[in-house]
């Protein structure tokens, strides 16, 4: 699916989704098999738990041209490794502040929580997040 025409002709957002194998990754799978539409710009990276989601991974993604990054983990209280998703949220909040400090919109990084059975929710997250990134435009690294 292509997003509606943006204010930046020729630009298509690049979005990276770090998905926990126990929930978001399965949900994305389900969204696919249910033939639910979500933006093709969202590239999924499988991680064993959002506890593995690292600040550096996200920063490198931005350096390499990502316009938005999100981590998607289990519902709070349901982490397979107890608190990987809680830690991930803290890292995301840390990253928001760090990105802001160098002039990047904090909304380019988000954390979501969902369960493996929420295929439609995954599609919705992917659509909404992409929509927000389209609203923000290309990453400041690429604007010039």
């Amino acid at each position: 699916m292509t997003m509606e025409a943006s204010a930046f002709p020729g630009w298509e957002p690049k979005i990276l989704a770090f998905c926990c194998q126990y929930c978001a990754y399965s949900a994305a799978d389900m969204a696919g098999s249910m033939r639910l539409e979500y933006p093709t710009e969202v590239e999924i990276v499988l991680i064993p738990c959002t506890g593995r989601f690292d600040v550096i991974l996200a920063l490198r993604a931005f350096e390499k041209g990502a316009d938005g990054v999100f981590a998607a983990g289990c519902l709070e209280g349901n982490c397979h490794f107890l608190d990987g998703n809680i830690r991930a949220r803290k890292r995301v909040n840390f990253l928001k502040a760090e990105l802001k400090s160098v002039g990047y919109e904090p909304e380019r990084i988000e954390m979501f929580n969902l369960s493996a059975s929420q295929g439609p929710r995954f599609a919705e997250i992917a659509r909404d997040f992409t929509q927000n990134i389209v609203g923000l435009g290309p990453s400041p690294a690429k604007k010039l």
Partner: peptide
Amino acid sequence: TKEAGILASLLRLDAAKEG
């Protein structure tokens, strides 16, 4: 090492933004 990685990345992102 890790904090250096983060800072290096932030400085590069900042430079990229400034062109």
